[in-house]
Design a protein around this nucleic acid. Structure first.
Lengths: 221, 221
DNA sequence: AATACAATCTAACGATTGTTAGATTGTATG
DNA sequence: CATACAATCTAACAATCGTTAGATTGTATT
């Protein structure tokens, strides 16, 4: 990293490329996506991403050097968070551009996930409306702690692992709408499969909390 | 590039990371910025970026493999263009996030460029209004061919190199507003310096055509 | 003080990238 | 058909990066 005293044009691009570099690794992108849901410690990030904690730490270091994440110490634990809402939006922007232009990605997504209910900005509002009125039941199938750190309004927390036991709690006649972490998360697909097998009318939406926020929709705690 | 038959979660991030990788090189970012103004041939890109044509070609190849650019053959020439408006917006998004979080970038910009007129979305409209009424003169100091392929409404093309000779054409009493390629381009700064030395009231705006378009403003041909 | 645990640091490797330079392909023109 | 030129391809090198594993730091607990 040659740091000349008089900065030139090319230095400007080098700085921006630092951010690009931080976004050039699949593992780092996964970490950013996890952090888009809220602040997390290194070992939780390691668990959720399935990486070794040392590798996780190394990638977080790279993200911190690019100023995309910040840290906070709390006793033995170090909490990482995105340095701003704009970072989460940059990740989603990158993901959307990839989905737009990379056929391979679209194919892979179609193979893995079931077709979700389309969610334009109008029917995001109407979904909220129906959920408020109790016409539909919105369930959040992420682990309970993720629900606690922020979730869609009027959503009920039913972690995927507990869905089978708690399935009787759900009203038989109503349409169920499941969501999880976002477009790359498959827990809601699993939930919909299970619910349909038990005779429910169930759909998934692609949105996670981060996507919901990006569209200017409210999130509850 | 291991391509498994059954795609997994991690494959999804790998695809997105392909886009990130394409954005991880300063030279490639410069090419994207140039292309954000419109379609260009390889040798023009090489000239404008100051790179060897072979290196330019290699970087364009990387961009094409990430599907961020597309090509069109016209005789001996191959024209490159961004594969969509979203790519230009992704670049600007990346640049804005870098500017937001990297102090070094902000410092470098301040050292190199003069303070521009702030341009919120309201006074973008009012700038347009004043330019239409003839209260101010908007000059585009980029090379003439860049002006031809798209410019701000009511702007006059006065390439930086010709400004000194044509300075008499400008109305003495009116405020001059100069623009060029965007925030990383310094031609408008040079123009403002020259104009002020000759007694004009001159300001620059950071916007280039791409930034202007991103804000939903009209562009002329 | 000794132990436990979260997190980082360090060193090492193999793989990937950026760059350079020469050779080659493809198209238009005389 | 020969020449000119745009653009790509190929080979090679040094530099950088991702990953692994062991050693170390810092904080809380006993």
């Amino acid at each position: 990293m040659k740091q000349n005293l008089t900065p030139t044009r090319s230095h400007l691009y080098e700085h921006v490329a630092r951010i690009g570099k931080a976004l050039s690794s699949p593992k780092r992108l996964e970490l950013i996506e996890l952090l888009a849901q809220g602040e997390l410690t290194v070992d939780v990030l390691a668990q959720r991403s399935g990486m070794d904690i040392r590798l996780t730490s190394a990638h977080l270091r790279a993200l911190r050097e690019a100023r995309l994440v910040e840290t906070r110490r709390d006793g033995k634990f170090i909490h990482y968070r995105l340095s701003g809402q704009d970072v989460a939006e940059l990740w989603m922007n990158l993901r959307e551009t990839a989905e737009e232009h990379l056929v391979e990605l679209r194919v892979a997504l179609e193979q893995m996930a079931m077709e979700p209910d389309a969610l334009s900005s109008e029917n995001r509002e109407s979904l909220l409306e129906k959920a408020r009125n109790g016409d539909i039941v919105v369930i959040d199938v992420r682990p309970g702690d993720e629900f606690d750190s922020g979730h869609l309004p009027h959503a009920r927390s039913i972690p995927l692992g507990e869905l089978e036991q708690r399935i009787a709690d759900l009203p038989a006649g109503k349409k169920i709408v499941a969501y999880c972490r976002g477009p790359f998360c498959l827990m809601s697909d699993e939930a919909v499969r299970l619910l349909r097998a038990r005779g429910f009318t169930a759909h998934k939406i692609k949105d996670g909390v981060a996507e919901w926020l990006k569209r200017g929709m409210p999130v509850e705690r």
